[in-house]
Design a protein around this nucleic acid. Structure first.
Lengths: 334, 334
DNA sequence: ATTATTTTTTTACGCGCGTAAAATTCAATA
DNA sequence: TATTGAATTTTACGCGCGTAAAAAAATAAT
């Protein structure tokens, strides 16, 4: 930087200032630096910069499972917004495991992030670890909430989205049963509760089909348990609302294999709906009717919130928990 | 570290040495450091470490599209192996765009990686950029090759895997046509060529169905163009070998929507096969018959190779291009 | 007990930059 | 032209560590 400053005819601290904020130097100075930049393509050493800055420009993003296209899309969206705001996002995946999540918190500390966007595992999370982390680093939770942790939470409102789907299903055919696996996070519980409430409000008897399974191979659980439940004739209703799209995708596969026609048309004997609008939901056979989460709003608000924290702002209570509405995506399966 | 060294009763350089390789200090010294570590949980500042090391322990991983579970799995596998070898992997996704790929190369330079594992976009890649990069940083290509770039290439052998599938399809029914989109990388071309060759060898007339479409939304292309081709009755054979699984997933959706029964059983009028054993291929309706790439072997060898380069080894010609065999995964669709 | 070897300590330097305070220059205003 | 305030430069310091060379200490071999 010393050399480069000489080449551009300004002092080193001025160059340093330029790289931290080009608009903070006089226009004529800026031109000189940028002219030199063309010729020598100098760039500050990332490690030296981060070692000396009071606060890095790093933003950590943590999702429970990057192999899930839902989180992959969400993470990508968030990354882009961070970059546009002049920050350096780094995404981590907990791979559905508590140990990984803890490991990531440790790694995060070592990169000294200005802020973190965390979609926690949920039930598998180690509360103490996350709590300690959030005390040290400005952290915003998204997708899945853990009470009392993080400066804010941004997600979807199951008590809006689930009734939306239940209403639709009841209006267009038999009232749905609810297909779920042991909950991995609070969302799953809330979705079930929202289902129960919505059914009761409409005067229908709710039926929850809880199948076995653990881990994050949701499709596999939906498929295996779907095969079993169908074979045993154990579905209390031929309209099935699944706790999430991935489970629904598995159940669709099971139905297909069992020779059951799924869909809204006359000749079909079963209806299956999901929740989330998973990127693959368009390409199942039949295409999956679902409730779309508002990716855009969630990622936008999450980044906004964490950046506000980073810049020293505080979150007032009205913005602590933000829940966005989902919207119905009607396709062929229900 | 100064303080911590005092607490553990050894000198700072000794502590530094310990963190670089715990086995490089005497056992008694090591115990004293680790005892102190329990009480004070000190950890070296990542940025200071990386600024001063001749070579960082960073490994860059670049894939064309992390939203594709195929690459997501591959990347995860590679990451784990890097960590186990004592390195710090960071994964980047080009998101299917040339600009992103170039941007990533730039970012990579700034983290001064010891080595890089690169699955290039292929045709959209900027050759000059990659070439320049590989000259500066030990780089191993995987999945998709670009002639003359990188120290080695690790991938699958389409001239083994495609004939495997073609043989199977011909043996069990009508010879397949080949369903492809404009190739995004050399793999796609090689797969088509391998198909042509395999058909000729078996004495059948090959038919390539090339549909329009660009970008990395393969399912969408398979679906939209599938619908069109089916409606126009344009498939030269009712057995279709798709260039990759994602295209096949789209085509399956199109067939379903067109009321065509796909599968190997009597009542089915169409067979569809894919290539890659995409994580979702098990859950399509019907489940997708495909050729599995050897994830494990590819990731293992890729990491081995780049680490060898990093540690100063050189790659002899016999290891420059490594192609692993795929294996047939027979499911319901063909 | 002496020598040879390994490990550790001491000493010293430098990595490439951020940052703070004081001194200086500059452009715009009065 | 004098004044003022902002922008810049100068000066100086420190971040937290790696690393090299020489000196000292501990261990192993003779």
């Amino acid at each position: 930087m010393e050399e480069f400053a000489a080449k551009s005819g300004v002092s080193r601290p001025t160059v340093s200032k330029y790289f931290n904020d080009p608009s903070s130097v006089r226009a004529s100075t800026r031109e000189r630096i940028e002219a030199a930049l063309e010729r020598y393509d100098f760039r500050p050493n990332l490690y030296a910069v981060n070692q000396n800055r009071r606060l890095t420009k790093n933003i950590g993003i943590v999702v429970p499972n990057l192999a899930d296209p839902f989180f992959s899309e969400l993470a990508r969206n968030i990354e882009r917004r961070c970059i546009d705001a002049g920050f350096s996002p780094t995404t981590f995946s907990s791979h559905g495991s508590r140990e990984h999540e803890i490991e990531i918190m440790d790694t995060l500390r070592s990169i000294r992030p200005a802020g973190v966007l965390l979609a926690p595992l949920g039930r598998s999370s180690d509360r103490a670890t996350l709590e300690a982390f959030c005390k040290d680093v400005p952290t915003v939770l998204f997708d899945s909430n853990i009470e009392g942790i993080g400066a804010a939470f941004i997600g979807s409102d199951p008590f809006q989205s689930i009734p939306l789907m239940v209403d639709y299903l009841c209006r267009t055919g038999a009232p749905p049963c609810f297909f779920e696996m042991p909950p991995v996070n609070p969302n799953a519980n809330k979705r079930r509760d929202a289902y129960l409430r919505a059914m009761q409000r409409l005067g229908h008897t709710p039926h929850v089909v809880r199948v076995e399974g653990h881990g994050w191979d949701f499709e596999d659980i939906g498929y295996r348990e779907g095969l079993r439940v169908i074979a045993e004739g154990g579905l209390p209703s031929q309209t099935v609302l699944c706790s999430n799209d991935r489970l629904a995708i598995g159940l669709l596969a099971a139905a297909y294999e069992s020779g059951i026609r799924v869909g809204i048309t006359e000749e079909c004997t079963m209806r299956i709906a999901g929740h989330d609008d998973h990127p693959f939901a368009r390409f199942t056979g039949p295409s999956l009717t679902t409730v779309a989460q508002d990716y855009k709003a969630i990622s936008e608000r999450s980044v906004e919130t964490v950046l506000k924290l980073v810049e020293g702002g505080s979150i007032d209570d009205s913005a602590r928990d933000i829940l966005f509405d989902g919207h119905l995506v009607m396709r062929a399966s229900a």
